[in-house]
Amino acid sequence: MPLTGHNVKPGEKPPVYPAAANARTQAAANAFAEFYMHTLDWAYATTNPSYMKHYNGASCGLCNGLATGIAKTAAEKHWYLGGRLTIRPATATPIAPVTAPADYCSVVSVDITAQTVVDKTGSIVSGEAAHPNFRWKLCSKWTVGTWHASYFAGVE
């Protein structure tokens, strides 16, 4: 697991899998959803998706796509500045109409700061505006004593 990066705040540590997620219940799935968003935030902080990928299920296209994009940014010797998440408590939401394998689904609202991609010379490659109150639906499947994200998408 990466411990540092260009976008890591001084003294910041990687997220820790919460004890509250250690059950196959909606409350535990909500705890996992919040944790998963923290692993996504950590991936943008470190420009390294390895920690979040540990919790990606094979069926989660957006999860795996984001991880691939972050890895590509790192391979190009670029990094993120900003794009950090402030994560609010997750709430339960129905699985339907999602067809991915899932035990429970949660909605997590986040505030995303403006983001810039910077190259190895310090020049700006691209940027994106802040996204306040962005809502995500995260469905998860309990497998081998832990949760894995099986579906991830923005919601209106």
Results as ranks from 00 to 15, higher is better:
residue 1 M to F: 02
residue 2 P to M: 02
residue 2 P to V: 00
residue 3 L to W: 00
residue 5 G to K: 05
residue 6 H to Y: 09
residue 6 H to L: 12
residue 7 N to A: 06
residue 7 N to E: 02
residue 9 K to V: 09
residue 9 K to G: 00
residue 10 P to G: 00
residue 12 E to P: 01
residue 12 E to C: 08
residue 12 E to G: 06
residue 14 P to N: 03
residue 14 P to Y: 04
residue 14 P to A: 05
residue 15 P to S: 05
residue 15 P to T: 05
residue 16 V to M: 05
residue 16 V to Q: 09
residue 18 P to T: 00
residue 18 P to K: 02
residue 20 A to G: 11
residue 20 A to R: 12
residue 21 A to T: 05
residue 21 A to D: 01
residue 22 N to H: 07
residue 23 A to L: 04
residue 24 R to S: 03
residue 24 R to N: 12
residue 24 R to I: 07
residue 24 R to L: 11
residue 25 T to G: 02
residue 26 Q to V: 05
residue 26 Q to W: 00
residue 27 A to R: 03
residue 28 A to T: 07
residue 32 F to P: 02
residue 32 F to R: 04
residue 34 E to F: 01
residue 35 F to V: 03
residue 36 Y to T: 01
residue 37 M to F: 12
residue 37 M to S: 13
residue 39 T to Y: 02
residue 41 D to K: 06
residue 43 A to R: 03
residue 44 Y to R: 15
residue 45 A to D: 07
residue 45 A to Q: 11
residue 46 T to L: 08
residue 48 N to L: 06
residue 49 P to S: 14
residue 52 M to E: 04
residue 53 K to L: 15
residue 55 Y to F: 15
residue 56 N to I: 06
residue 58 A to R: 12
residue 59 S to F: 04
residue 59 S to N: 04
residue 60 C to E: 07
residue 60 C to N: 09
residue 61 G to R: 12
residue 66 L to R: 11
residue 67 A to N: 03
residue 67 A to R: 07
residue 68 T to A: 14
residue 69 G to Y: 01
residue 70 I to C: 02
residue 71 A to N: 11
residue 71 A to L: 11
residue 71 A to V: 11
residue 73 T to E: 07
residue 73 T to I: 14
residue 74 A to H: 08
residue 76 E to S: 14
residue 76 E to D: 13
residue 77 K to R: 11
residue 78 H to R: 15
residue 78 H to Y: 10
residue 80 Y to D: 02
residue 80 Y to F: 15
residue 81 L to A: 13
residue 81 L to P: 00
residue 82 G to Y: 03
residue 82 G to N: 05
residue 82 G to A: 06
residue 84 R to A: 01
residue 84 R to S: 01
residue 85 L to F: 14
residue 85 L to W: 08
residue 85 L to Y: 12
residue 86 T to L: 13
residue 87 I to L: 07
residue 87 I to Y: 00
residue 89 P to D: 04
residue 92 A to T: 12
residue 94 P to A: 10
residue 94 P to S: 08
residue 97 P to L: 08
residue 100 A to W: 10
residue 100 A to Q: 15
residue 100 A to M: 13
residue 102 A to S: 14
residue 103 D to G: 13
residue 104 Y to D: 05
residue 105 C to L: 10
residue 105 C to S: 09
residue 105 C to W: 07
residue 105 C to N: 08
residue 107 V to R: 14
residue 108 V to P: 04
residue 108 V to L: 11
residue 108 V to C: 10
residue 109 S to A: 14
residue 109 S to F: 07
residue 110 V to L: 10
residue 110 V to K: 03
residue 112 I to S: 03
residue 113 T to H: 04
residue 113 T to N: 05
residue 113 T to V: 06
residue 115 Q to V: 15
residue 116 T to M: 08
residue 118 V to Y: 01
residue 118 V to A: 01
residue 118 V to I: 15
residue 120 K to V: 15
residue 122 G to M: 10
residue 123 S to A: 15
residue 124 I to R: 14
residue 127 G to R: 14
residue 128 E to D: 10
residue 130 A to M: 13
residue 132 P to Y: 13
residue 132 P to T: 13
residue 134 F to A: 14
residue 134 F to S: 12
residue 135 R to F: 06
residue 135 R to A: 13
residue 136 W to R: 13
residue 138 L to Y: 05
residue 139 C to N: 07
residue 140 S to N: 05
residue 143 T to N: 07
residue 143 T to F: 00
residue 145 G to T: 03
residue 147 W to E: 09
residue 149 A to Y: 05
residue 150 S to Y: 01
residue 151 Y to H: 12
residue 151 Y to C: 04
residue 152 F to M: 14
residue 155 V to R: 06
residue 155 V to S: 06
